[in-house]
Design a protein around this nucleic acid. Sequence first.
DNA 1: TCGGGGAATTTGAACGATCAAACTTTGTGT
DNA 2: ACACAAAGTTTGATCGTTCAAATTCCCCGA
Lengths: 334, 334
Amino acid sequence: MSKAPTVEDVALRAGVSRQTVSNVLNTPDIVKPATRERVVAAIEELGYRRHAAARRLRIRRSSTIGIRLDPYVGGISGVVLDRFVHAITERASERGMRMLVYSARTAEEELARLAELWDGSEIDAAILTGTVRDDPRVVRLDEDGLPFVSFGRPWGTDDIADPKHLWVDVDGAAGTRAACEHALGFGPRVAFLGWPTGSGTGDDRERGWAERMADAGLPGPRLTAEEGVLPGRLAVEAALAAGLDADAIVCVSDSLAVGALLAVAAARRPLPVIGFDNTPTAEALGFSSVEQRPEDVAGGVLRLLMGPTGDVVVPSRPLAGSAHVLIEPRLVVR
Amino acid sequence: MSKAPTVEDVALRAGVSRQTVSNVLNTPDIVKPATRERVVAAIEELGYRRHAAARRLRIRRSSTIGIRLDPYVGGISGVVLDRFVHAITERASERGMRMLVYSARTAEEELARLAELWDGSEIDAAILTGTVRDDPRVVRLDEDGLPFVSFGRPWGTDDIADPKHLWVDVDGAAGTRAACEHALGFGPRVAFLGWPTGSGTGDDRERGWAERMADAGLPGPRLTAEEGVLPGRLAVEAALAAGLDADAIVCVSDSLAVGALLAVAAARRPLPVIGFDNTPTAEALGFSSVEQRPEDVAGGVLRLLMGPTGDVVVPSRPLAGSAHVLIEPRLVVR
DNA sequence: TCGGGGAATTTGAACGATCAAACTTTGTGT
DNA sequence: ACACAAAGTTTGATCGTTCAAATTCCCCGA
């Protein structure tokens, strides 16, 4: 097994120069067809492949996007992110991009990692997940000039009119509205099991239910629990014991939905429960759930980073109207 | 914001030469302490970071490992792989390695991707998952000289004595044996719900149960179902209807365990069910399950690729005794 | 036949790091 | 004080590709 061929080898074989080979690879149309064919043939024969590192060094682009993969903490919620990672990996590859994953425990550690990857020219862009209000990462990445998109809105800031950075998110209200619509088929009293007020995501999802019920002129009961199966179960058990009068329960997450299901089953009250996130657990237990459509989120992220069709990351200042993508989720009925 | 500093800039600032800076970075002990300090200070002041692409080009190593991330297909089983990806990302980073994920739908496509990444010098090694008997990937990667480790044994080949390649796997029999042990605490009649005979993994897991029961002189009933919640449910329902006499059910997977649980609940027969893989669903529903310990698998993979402590991939011919790692799973009791 | 001009191709330099070898400094023993 | 080895440092070349500028080719009209 000999050394991998270089442009030089190909050039020699095709009887042309380095640069012509390079042109065939990068800008085929400026090469005379006859020459091009000869070069292509030589490439085939030698099994030539570009050396990525050399190319990166020269053009100062890596065609790679970084994304964090937190240490696995268990629970249902991590699954959504994993699905997104799968989706973005696939979509990125269609656009000629690679995905580099890194791990970090804290925001600081993530920043350190990203700085390293960015300065070392290992990534052209990054995708942030789990952004919080006044996220320190957003500020620093802006300073560093690293193009990035976040999956999740920066709740609390008004950045529709004056966008500070690019983001893609799921329209939670639309999701629960759809869930509600479906739930109303079981009867007029649709309850909502949500998180305590204050989380942007939770409030958004609750709004969909509240609005739909208001439209119908049917204020439904609202329950609250911290995220988790057990809290959900306890909340619903308590509500049932207190004489909850509902025809269905729409939940802010699959974890809470599982808890609700367990409570409902224990009480022998066959109440339909609808979850959010459509995790494998929802599939396994066979309850309906709102699907975030990770593929569409991934598509949105890439569109913001690279434009509708390009295959290069184009650093763009966020412009009102074109800095955000809001994905409409869909209800998976079971 | 000016151009990123290079070794040259650092050298100038510290009043030394390029190479000395490089030495401080790579082999600090051959540099005189006083000089070293000056260089380190200059690096700090300028915020210098190595340009990864340039380094890769020169040393012909990328310090990157590739791993496939299949398009997400849903279901519970994919979660195990995701957990492994998380774990390996974390561990790899501790060893100074990066993880590059790629997607592929078929073995052929994966080979194409890997060849591209390997020839382009983007990865130093690869991790294969879901290897099957006479896997075409194994042969081709060997030919190409790409170092790789597989997560999962090549069932069917005798490669303990004459190892053909490196692999790490989970000792399924040990897992079900532990599950069985725990189940025997509920009573002597422990049933097993497995896949149809013929899958290496399934047979291995079943063996643990069979052996443990044989040791106890208690042949338990054995049920069979294809992977999936519904098949599992139907199998157990049928068995219960036919008068299944059991004190607990050990299952080959969490999916089947969920099915078993649903059947058991529907029949109002409080039977403990134990699953395998410890997915979030097992956690959510609160049933015991055998945990594959992805962190240990990840550790094993890196050890095979890089030796016990190194930070470089060392391509090694598989040697009997040191080519495989078998992880002992542990039962998570709930 | 020659010149003009655009298309096609080639040449030299550069990207930023490390290797190998040459060179200089330091330290030791006599 | 001197020779000699070891330690420390510098210089020139190189990895494979692409950019920028220079050169050659080719067609067409005068």
